[in-house]
Design a protein around this nucleic acid. Structure first.
Lengths: 230, 230
DNA sequence: AATTGTATATCGTCC
DNA sequence: GGACGATGTACAATT
């Protein structure tokens, strides 16, 4: 990794065109060809960047101009950095790419779907799973189940359910009900948390809402204890 | 800005929980409280991060543990970094935050809307613009036009049109048609590119789809200096 | 503070 | 390789 602190300006052309006026910034060149220009504020996002694969050219002994190129489909993405003053320029050998260990996430939507597929009764009393990722031509329904009366139940799973989640399951229902066999199919929206407006909209469309608790699904916590939690 | 290259591990808990095993990484502490952990590969995105405002605590003379806290609504976001070996630890004074100049963009959706407002016939033969940002109580319609037969046409503009775009214009149409004068109003979805599923959904709802080309729109314009201007 | 809409979104996954 | 959905989306503008 090469880190340059420099007064610089930059021009990007690709999906759009940008111009970055001259100021003091951090330039980051990763081993895989990633290039990032960061200001000393503004959080997460670089001002400009290029994702790999890239080709990097440097003009001048002291770096005065750096051009980063990338083939993006038919067109070429291009980031041109002009350095007016270099305050620091250091490189660090950070080892082989595979020496880096991957980030381990817990609590994403996929986990929730796995757990609910194993315990569909949390989405509604007496539910049995028929299929995960039930295909429709506008995308898959997360869980397709049958209830105690053998009626179809479509379940949409979200970490956080919003109005958009209600729109999504509404679209699926629209699509499913084109087939007479699903004429009486019910809809369930299951999420760790459901926004108030989403709940209202779901209610008005006859879509059931279920809030589920990851810890309960995992059996790490008794459902009863939840009554006393916040 | 403080830059630390170190063998480190990290734990984040907040919207989800993550664990980052020990490896050599770059830690970036911006003046505004932003904290980023970058690997020497992987592009744009930090492995872990915290956006401002944050509170940063450091334990030990030589940094051995750094805890970044942030109040995110009711809960607290927390990033804990454990440093096993510090290879480099430098700070750079990059000047006042306002000394940084903002990025100037050209070619975003707003520009597309400007161009189509000037040349509405690209959204459909014989279209004349009546008003940009036609207000409804659920948000503005991008362009409101009339066609050769003096019928109303509502145009939604996107850089990339997705199913969500179809939902959006559908909501507007629903709202407009509550007023008898728009009973026969047609809908057009104009975008640089339209996703196949969006096209399917639009078709099934009687919404016309038009793909427009920014270069063509610009080519027909007078040679005017728009690049990088506001 | 909460909601909405855009993004050079980025990133995985599945077809 | 293209398309689609999730993301700690981030982020800005608006209510």
């Amino acid at each position: 990794m090469r880190l340059i602190v420099a007064r610089c300006s930059a021009q990007y052309s690709g999906r759009l065109d940008t111009f970055l006026p001259e100021a003091l910034r951090l330039l980051m060149f990763k081993e895989d060809g990633s290039v990032l220009i960061h200001a000393d504020a503004g959080g997460y996002k670089p001002l400009n960047w290029m994702t790999p694969p890239t080709v990097i050219e440097q003009t001048g002994d002291l770096p005065t101009r750096i051009v980063v190129r990338k083939h993006a489909g038919k067109t070429e993405d291009r980031l041109e950095i002009t350095l007016a003053e270099v305050l620091s320029d250091v490189s660090h050998d950070m080892g082989a790419p595979d020496s880096d260990a991957a980030l381990n996430k817990d609590g994403v939507e996929a986990h929730l779907q796995e757990l609910l597929a194993e315990q569909p009764h949390h989405c509604g009393e007496g539910l049995r799973l028929v299929r995960r990722e039930w295909p429709t031509d506008i995308g898959p329904v997360d869980l397709m189940c049958r209830d105690a009366d053998d009626e179809w139940v479509a379940v949409e799973i979200k970490r956080t359910a919003t109005i958009e989640s209600v729109e999504q399951i509404t679209r699926y229902m629209e699509r499913l009900k084109a087939d007479p066999q699903f004429a009486t199919c019910r809809a369930v929206l299951a999420a760790q948390s459901i926004k108030p407006q989403a709940r209202v909209l779901a209610q008005s469309r006859g879509i059931a809402c279920v809030e589920v608790d990851l810890a309960v699904l995992r059996g790490e916590r008794e459902p009863e204890l939840r009554l006393f939690a916040a």
